[in-house]
Each structure stands twice: as C-alpha cells, then as structure tokens.
C-alpha cells in the first residue's frame, strides 16, 4: 500500500484527506495540485477491509474516492455505524459523467462529484464540497431538532388528553400537574408525559 504525504506549508486548520484511487497518474496530479494548501493527503489504493482500519487510524476530515472503486460500498456503509461521524465524500468520475451525477446528489447527500483532477480547480472544488457538507449538516440538525420538538408536543398533548378523560381534570389542571411532576422529578415534560401515558394505559 502506497502512502504518500503531501507537504503543507500554511493553513488555518490542516484538513486531512483520505484519497482512494487506483489510478496513479490522477492521484499524483491531485497530490501536486494540493501542495502548499491546507489539505494533507494520505493516498491508498482500493484495499477492501483495511479501509475500515485506515479510516479509524487516520480519522480523515474528508474522503476522496474514485466512483468506480469497489471500496465505495464500505464507505457508504460507514454512515450506518454510529461510531463513524459523517464526513464529506468527494467522488471522482469521468468528466462526461460528472455533471449528471452532480445534479442527482445536489440534494445534499454524502457525495459531491467532480471531473478528472484539474489542478487549478481542485482546491476550489474541495472547499466547496466542505462548505456544502457543513451547510447540509446544520440543516439536518435543525430538522432533527424540529422533529423532536414536534414529537414532544404530541406526547404532552396525549398525556393531557388522558389526564382530562381519566382524572376528570380541566386542560389547565392537566398541564399544571404535568409541569409540576416535571419540576419535582427534574425531568423533561415529554419524559413525564411518556411515563403518564404508559401508566394510565396500563391501569385502564
């Protein structure tokens, strides 16, 4: 396995890239293009299971891979492992293919595709991929938190309704008793609601 390290002379933050490419000329071109940049490249060829070890050891900030590499499935599956933090993945495809694929992945999945390494463009492409990935992550996090809030509201409403029907409380009383229980036990209102729902449903 060939590991080449590119020199980086100046940068605000060094970003480590794992490059998986079986085409040595293209890999060399990329290494050259990124000399004296904030990107620090570790190059490996398609390697099967040892890729997992590489990712584990090197903890790259970004992965650049040939779209035709058999290792793509390993990389794709990493996203299903909780221990693996999401990373931007840049894919190299033949020039004529890249526009089509880029359009399909625009929606913000892990992959960003660009054509054959053009030294003058490569830095800009990596910068853009990174920026887009960060945007996507924050949108995703926002979505998750909105969803959580919505689920919490649904739980609280359900617990309130149960208290109203089974304990003959008014809506206000139900809300206050949930809030009091939450404060007394130091729990969140949705957690208290969950307990109430399961309790009242068992008693019924």
């Amino acid at each position: 396995m060939a590991i080449k390290i590119s020199k980086n002379t100046h940068s605000d933050k060094v970003l480590s890239i794992l490059l998986i490419d079986d085409n040595p000329e293209r890999a060399d071109a990329l290494l050259k293009a990124l000399q004296h940049s904030r990107y620090h490249i570790n190059h490996i060829v398609s390697s099967g299971v040892s890729l997992l070890k590489q990712v584990n050891d090197l903890k790259p900030d970004m992965v650049v891979i040939d779209i035709e590499s058999p290792d793509r499935d390993i990389l794709d599956s990493l996203h299903t492992l909780s221990s693996f933090n999401p990373k931007p993945i840049v894919m190299f495809a033949e020039q004529e293919d890249s526009d089509t694929i880029t359009q399909s992945v625009k929606s913000g999945v892990s992959a960003y595709v660009c054509g054959n390494a053009d030294p003058s463009r490569v830095r800009a492409i990596l910068d853009a991929a990174l920026a887009r990935f960060e945007d996507y992550q924050s949108v995703k996090q926002e979505l998750v938190s909105t969803k959580n809030k919505l689920e919490a509201k649904q739980l609280i409403d359900q617990a309130k309704r149960l208290l109203i029907t089974t304990k003959k409380m008014s809506e206000e009383e139900a809300f206050h008793s949930l809030r009091k229980m939450a404060m007394d036990t130091g729990q969140k209102m949705e957690d208290v609601s969950k307990t109430i729902i399961s309790l009242l449903n068992t008693i019924k």
Binding site: E68, S69, R72, S104
Partner: peptide, 16 residues
C-alpha cells in the same frame, strides 16, 4: 457491470 452497489444506485438515480 459495476464494481459497487452504491455506484450502481447513483448511476441509476442520475439516469446514466
């Protein structure tokens, strides 16, 4: 023929 399921998926999704 394709080397990986993910690339097969991406190429089908994008119309290649």
């Amino acid at each position: 023929p394709q080397n990986s399921w993910s690339t097969l998926r991406d190429k089908l999704q994008s119309g290649m």
